[in-house]
Design a protein around this nucleic acid. Structure first.
Lengths: 328, 328
DNA sequence: CTTGCATCTGACAACGTTGTCCAGGCTCTA
DNA sequence: TAGAGCCTGGACAACGTTGTCAGATGCAAG
């Protein structure tokens, strides 16, 4: 900038004014400055700008795994909102590791992001308290914050799972399996709770062998499914706790000779083209992201609101697999 | 930091030393400083640090659409490499708009990212020349850079498409359709070229009605597919130019009474579970991202190398749909 | 006791930008 | 033509950090 000023033969501040489109510069001067900028290939150093102004016009997104098809649209939605507010998005994956989540979130704070959208991996977010006090806007998505009071945007995991399982019961099933992620993950726990609630509503006692928790890699999901599908009284329907589990279960069922009903949590691409189509409890990832981001910017606008818990409804999409009758 | 120094009763620089783990501080002093840091919830301001040091330890990723399942793993791979080098990843979507790509890339440069991984939307990247001269490491992925000399990491789009189409020919097809994206997109053009090459190798003249270019939204892809599948001499096989096209074509074929062979470029989740399974030419998105990122950091390490064009092989995965014989 | 050396500590400038404030030149009016 | 008021342009400090360098302190050896 100094160089530009020297070349244009004007003061430093005048260049600054031109760069920022501030008023109070003669067209002639502006032209000279602009020429110097072009000639030198000058680009304002935003780091210095941030240092001076305090705001960075960037927000951070901590999510679980960008490669998971569920988070792509969510991330994209956050980005679009950020863009509409002139902000950039910095993101990172926690890989479901609480330590890594914390490391990432704090690194983003050190970069002085204006706000933070966090998909929690851990269940204790007190480490963010100093940052929030220091003015970093914060919204949690998909899972609630742990041990601090903050904005949260969730899907109705409990209700969605309950409705899905009730749907299976309505189609005549009584022995229904549930395969889900580790219960320390909030969404997994809520979906399990929904499963149990639906069963209880129908007066069906849940047998130990019907639920499988904490399995996450395909090989173990496969074994879990095979187990509950064998024996003298196998389950006649399976409720899959997330998209990855659903995919694996589809594979297992495809190898089976008898039809087994299936409903999965989270929608899956091409689910309608399988035979039968896969019935799912769908959540709107993009809407989750958009809602969270908008709330973040409202915090930043100073339209300060008390922390709130927003729960978005899920949608049961029937495609065939969830409407299969029990095969006794 | 000033506050910390005051509270600990030491000089500014001493605090800096403690924060950065530099040697030359008595354990006793260090403890006092550490206490002050904890008490005040101090976190170093990386903006200032950047300003002083010149390096930001962050890299930018400009991609097409984070919601596209192809870019999720790619982005994640770049992130992992960045993380291994202690860098953060800032990313944004160009939405296939050259202006937006430029805006984004320059915004990242203004943030003084150390390097830039770009999935080009436009075909003229001379706007990056001043930045590259200023020391911003740059690697292009998935599509080549336009009008500048830079590192490029690509899939073998031409060869992959040629092999795929040759596979169809080998199974007896002669009337083979091609549905692809706008030819101004390099990958689309290369795949089209591959299609034509395979046909020419087999001595099959390509009829106008068999190729459909530039269609991208599902509705128009559908119409294009229906068109080439009707008439007196419909195509007996379709080569789909990318994952989104493939999905739409699968839907169209599912409504058809006669079997039509299909091979798609890019792998699709669940492709093996459809009936028939979908044969695809798969590229390794994660490997693309990893290769590009590693090359970026080698530029930054100063292991300076001449710009290079790296082409990664594709893989034909046969699952059934590509092996259907022509239904005459 | 003095000197020399090693170790630890702090004052200061600089990074590149922007906000504040003032100077100088201009126009307009009396 | 002089004074008031407006507009443009520039000097300077400040943002929070780190590199440089010199001063202070302590200890050992002469």
């Amino acid at each position: 900038m100094k160089d530009v000023a020297a070349r244009a033969g004007v003061g430093l501040k005048t260049v600054s004014r031109v760069v920022n489109g501030e008023p109070g510069v003669t067209p002639d001067t502006e032209r000279r400055v602009q020429e110097a900028i072009d000639a030198l290939g000058f680009r304002r150093n935003d780091s210095a700008r941030v240092l001076r102004k305090g705001r960075t016009a960037s927000i951070g997104l901590v999510l679980e795994d960008l490669a998971d098809p569920f988070y792509g649209p969510l991330s994209r939605a956050v980005e679009e909102v950020a863009r509409a507010h002139g902000a950039l998005l910095i993101n990172g994956s926690s890989a479901e590791d609480p330590d890594r989540e914390q490391e990432l979130a704090l690194a983003l704070c050190a970069r002085r992001v204006d706000g933070l959208v966090v998909i929690p991996a851990g269940d204790d977010h007190r480490y963010l308290e100093p940052e929030i006090r220091a003015g970093v806007a914060t919204v949690f998505v998909d899972r609630p914050a742990g041990k601090i009071d903050a904005d949260v945007v969730l899907s109705d995991n409990h209700g969605g799972a309950r409705d899905g399982v009730a749907h299976l019961i309505a189609h005549g099933h009584r022995r229904i399996g549930f395969i889900g992620d580790m219960p320390r993950i909030h969404t997994a726990a809520e979906r399990l709770r929904g499963y149990r609630a639906a069963m209880e509503d129908a007066g069906i006692p849940v047998e130990e062998a019907w639920t499988s928790l904490g399995v996450t890699d395909p090989e173990r999901v496969r074994r879990a499914a095979e187990e509950m599908l064998s024996g003298p009284a196998p389950v006649t329907a399976v409720f899959a706790g997330n998209n990855r589990v659903t995919v694996t279960v589809i594979r297992v069922l495809a190898e089976l000779s008898r039809p087994v009903a299936l409903i999965g949590f989270d929608d899956i691409e091409l689910a309608d083209l399988l035979n039968p189509g896969i019935t799912v409890v769908a959540q709107d990832a993009a809407l989750l992201g958009r809602t969270a981001a908008e709330r973040l910017f409202r915090q930043l606008d100073g339209t300060l609101l008390a922390p709130e818990r927003i729960e978005l409804p899920t949608r049961l999409i029937t495609r065939g697999s969830g409407e299969l009758p029990p095969a006794e």
